[in-house]
């Protein structure tokens, strides 16, 4: 399967990328690692008229701690995140998530900015960004994660807007991401992330709705002194997950409850 024809332009920097996107119009797409976009183009589910390749834009990858923030360049690849001593020290949950994205070959190419921009509800980093109130810094503005994941594959990014970096809070405390899937390299059927932050727990749910979600009832239960089991019992409150080939809505709710308890127990073990 071969993608439909498109015009290819390589951006030299982000200003150039913005200029090219304006010139090429709203059907142009940004190419980073290509590991969501190219498969869609091969199946012709996406047929952009042009691609603006960010692959050679200098300074768009890499991570740094800036006060109480971990700033992650949009072009940073999964394998870099998983191996980075900076990430492992400042936000080990991000390194752990990155180590379990796809397989070895996918981790060599896919980027965090690509995953965030793609906004697949089965993506792992959107869950982390949402639950930790991360900021998505773009060429136009800074978006709060809570406003960014609007619906399945839907974000407020304008046609000429490019993600520069994602700013997470530094959070080296107890954490765990439990990703339930049939094979290790699959997407999560349901994923639950737990992170201790500012004296409380943040709980995020992957693939339980059209966007990543927070298990707020379970977070509140923990704040009132509930156990992991007690919090787990509340993890599916208000949840209306999709049914698909892999899991029914009821089963997803069950998984959200069980995996929340498990994530909390393993985070504090």
């Amino acid at each position: 399967m071969i993608p439909a024809s498109f015009e290819y332009r390589r951006a030299s920097d982000l200003d150039d990328a913005t200029r090219l996107l304006r010139e090429l119009g709203p059907e142009a797409k940004v190419l980073a690692g290509g590991h969501s976009l190219i498969p869609l183009m091969r199946l012709r589910l996406a047929q952009p008229t042009a691609l603006v390749d960010l692959g050679r834009v200098p300074g768009l990858d890499g991570v740094r701690v800036d006060g109480d923030r971990l700033r992650v360049g949009a072009l940073t690849r999964h394998a870099q995140l998983a191996a980075s001593p900076v990430v492992r020290g400042a936000l080990p949950l991000l390194a752990a998530m990155a180590a379990e994205v796809g397989d070895l070959q996918v981790r060599a190419r896919g980027t965090i900015g690509g995953v965030i921009a793609h906004a697949d509800p089965a993506g792992d980093y959107p869950t982390l960004a949402l639950m930790l109130d991360a900021e998505i810094v773009t060429t136009r503005t800074t978006h709060a994660a809570a406003d960014f994941f609007q619906h399945i594959f839907t974000t407020p990014l304008e046609a000429d807007e490019v993600i520069r970096e994602i700013a997470f809070p530094v959070a080296p405390g107890p954490h765990r991401y439990v990703k339930f899937r049939r094979r290790r390299c699959d997407w999560a059927i349901v994923g639950v992330a737990a992170q201790r932050l500012d004296g409380g727990w943040r709980l995020g749910l992957t693939n339980c709705g059209p966007t990543p979600l927070r298990a707020r009832a379970a977070e509140a239960a923990l704040a009132q002194g509930e156990s992991a089991a007690g919090a787990g019992a509340r993890a599916a409150d208000g949840l209306t997950p999709p049914s698909d080939l892999r899991a029914s809505a009821d089963y997803r709710c069950h998984l959200a409850r069980v995996l929340t308890q498990r994530a909390l127990e393993e985070a504090t073990a």
């Binding site: 290819y8 390589r10 190419l31 290509g34 590991h35 190219i38 498969p39 091969r42 199946l43 390749d53 692959g55 394998a79 397989d103 070895l104 070959q105 996918v106 060599a108 190419r109």
Partner: peptide
């Protein structure tokens, strides 16, 4: 479909699925 890995090559030392990389990249 980027699943099977039969097309894996080394690109600047990284193992990549060459069905999911454009030649221009």
């Amino acid at each position: 479909t980027s699943q099977c890995g039969a097309c894996t090559v080394l690109l600047d030392g990284d193992a990549v699925k060459s069905c999911t990389v454009l030649a221009v990249q």
